[in-house]
């Protein structure tokens, strides 16, 4: 079992971990979303790669084709891509609204202002 024979899995896992790392390590809301998108994309590979056989075609019933690739993962991932796009769009829309409300998209600054807001609440303004 070497990297060579499992190249696609190595790429998948690298993207997965890199994406998740960006989400956790970056404080910028847009960069976090980029990380999230990379993380989701790695899963597309996880599904697609095992479904593809080298030299395989779509399952067409004909004498000329002997080797078929499984089309189901493609269909599933088409759905997952739609979900990913929707999530990214919603996340970006929220980031725009957050910038309008807080005038920053750095998580630390926003949380500091939230703490101020909570302090103001507590005094019962």
């Amino acid at each position: 079992m070497s990297i060579g024979t499992h190249f696609s899995y190595a790429v998948t896992v690298f993207l997965m971990v890199a994406g998740l790392f960006i989400v956790i390590a970056r404080g910028n809301l847009i960069k976090k979303l980029v990380g999230l998108a990379i993380f989701q994309t790695s899963v597309y590979l996880l599904y697609i790669v095992p479904g593809k056989l080298i030299g395989g075609t779509a399952p067409i019933l004909d004498d000329r084709f002997k080797l078929y690739s499984n089309p189901l993962p493609h269909v599933l991932i088409l759905t997952a891509i739609v979900v990913g796009v929707a999530t990214l769009a919603l996340g970006l829309a929220l980031a725009v609204r957050i910038r309008e409300a807080y005038d920053t998209i750095e998580e630390d600054d926003i949380l500091a202002r939230d703490v101020d807001d909570c302090g103001a609440d507590r005094q019962g303004k």
Partner: peptide, 13 residues
Amino acid sequence: LMASYQYLVMGTI
């Protein structure tokens, strides 16, 4: 907004 954003990130993970 921020609560929703955090939920979005955690929920998507």
